[in-house]
Design a protein around this nucleic acid. Sequence first.
DNA 1: ATGAAAGCGCTAACAC
DNA 2: GTGTTAGCGCTTTCAT
Lengths: 373, 373
Amino acid sequence: MLLRRWARALNERTVRVRVPTVYDVAEKAGVSIATVSRVYRSPEAVRERTRERVVEAARALGYVPSGSARGLASRTTGVLGLCFPDHADPAVEEGYREGEGPDEDDAAATLYSDQVIRGMERAARRHGYALLIAASLEDGPQSLVAQVAGRVDGFAVLARTVPTEDLELIGRRLPIVMLAGPRERDHFDHIEVANEDGLRELTRHLVTGHGLTRLAFVGGEPGSPDAEARFRGYRRACREAGLPVPAEPDARGDMTLAEGSRAADALLDRAAAAGTAPPQAMLFANDQMAVGALHALERRGIRVPEDIAVTGFDGIPLGRAVRPSLTTVRQPMRRLGEEAVELLVRRLAEPDLEPRSLMLPVRTAHRGSCGCA
Amino acid sequence: MLLRRWARALNERTVRVRVPTVYDVAEKAGVSIATVSRVYRSPEAVRERTRERVVEAARALGYVPSGSARGLASRTTGVLGLCFPDHADPAVEEGYREGEGPDEDDAAATLYSDQVIRGMERAARRHGYALLIAASLEDGPQSLVAQVAGRVDGFAVLARTVPTEDLELIGRRLPIVMLAGPRERDHFDHIEVANEDGLRELTRHLVTGHGLTRLAFVGGEPGSPDAEARFRGYRRACREAGLPVPAEPDARGDMTLAEGSRAADALLDRAAAAGTAPPQAMLFANDQMAVGALHALERRGIRVPEDIAVTGFDGIPLGRAVRPSLTTVRQPMRRLGEEAVELLVRRLAEPDLEPRSLMLPVRTAHRGSCGCA
DNA sequence: ATGAAAGCGCTAACAC
DNA sequence: GTGTTAGCGCTTTCAT
């Protein structure tokens, strides 16, 4: 270690602002670097007087342990990660900004991922972990996953964020838990929300609670697993209520406000053209579309809920702010994050456990747009 | 490096799941570790054929570069950090849950820090950084700051999260930007929000816009810099309007819903006891208290805004959801996060720049509770 | 209870 | 364009 010391001394003269290391602290405290390390890792293993000397030396020098060096030496980081999608849909953001300036920095603009982040952060903290978050970007050797995966002890991935192929590779290296969306890989831990149950219950509420029978369901694009699951719940409720069971949604949209408006208009126009009565309720696969529909209906002078009931799915803040407030199914997003951490921590402790798949329950929120408020 | 190889080989037989390293990839691709490294750091410096071989070997092995090792060797992490306070006030969370079940996982429960996080994440991503977040916990040698500081290239700290003494130490090691709150240390970059201007403008609106003259201001606890700045803005507006300028807030509260209710009651009781007319408007130092006041007033059968106007500060989502909706001053929280990243990136590039202090403008939101909706 | 020394997996000069 | 090699700052046996 002579060489090392020499290099350090040289360094001292060369570099502008020396970052203190264990060596500096050890020297100043008159102990070995091992002892300095112990003071931080297992203080009780060091005699009190010694420990004090070290702590004082560290303070005096402004020493902060290097996370990278620790991580490298100990093969753990004390950090959990979350990869979430970059909101591909600009209208999602716009939607929240209703009636406010265009460049508004609006506290109401809470996104799905915000809640998941908060949940994970909370739970991670309880377990002594910090949280590293990153939204998906481009790929390449420098991809998002690589950046995150290399710096954490385990991480969660929101559905459709990362190519499964990449996950497959990385999953061999550290624990991954998949959040929301169907269980694509049965060897990963996985958490989803009860999409089907939620829409089933909501539909049942409209039928038995409000006596509505002419319903219409507006689904997402065919590829969306969440929207499909919700549609299944709708069908199931229809069947159970003895109503006609549609093979396909009455309309589809890309989950945005604009498409919600369009779908509502289309449904109404279609009924008018066919000379049939319009639906008594429109159930949308998500809140954004439902709010869009609210706008469209208002434009047409159709009253909600008097003339028609409208429902969404998710429980976004905007749904509370609109009038009438939106009846919806609320997803436990924060809990999703919390459970993700629990699963990761569990697996870190016992890597050989069977992969688990959780289904989180949802809750319907009966508000104004179905006639409940 | 013989020893190294030998250790590896041994390792291979011992450890259950070998994590591939540059050495493995290099061997498989028939190149040196330096070349493997180059493929990831500067692909253009490697001949195409070689690069392909390496990439393929990496994929086959499931190789992911270790962030720790990289960080150690290169002395940079590609990560920025944020330390924010753990919401010491439980009522803050409760407040959002009005009218919902107690264990509700509510999307409306957006906190101040959520928006800052989102802003930072966005901006960080634009600059190629990931974001490490951690809420304050206890101290000790293993404190929050240490955990974060050791793993990032620079970080932001929300006011009153970390002892300034610690920051002082760490500030010598890497860039720190202080967010919200007064500028305590003039050698750190710093961003605050125009608290004073905001309340001045809001007060002026009540006076000139609505013709109110009997105002009451409810401040925070004496130690809160934000609340004090807001009070200064109130006083200034009073002075400019030729109204009496109070030396102290008419009441104080700890920024919670409950205290807002209490303060409103106290103000009204006091006026009744003194036989004087109640105020025409109550201005609160934050939204939570204002919403609490709304509840108290409703209980007393006092109409808002007909009998009395109520205003808050912050722009929390709850303020939109209550009836009447709350007139307030909205803080650009997301922008706070974005600007923090810009400052950090700037300083990383040029460490010797003068410390900067930004003041972000706020915007008043005239809604129902002042009589505007 | 403390010290000595061997790496952890990568980057960055520097050679070739 | 590619290989060699010396660390980066810490943790961790293994001695003492």
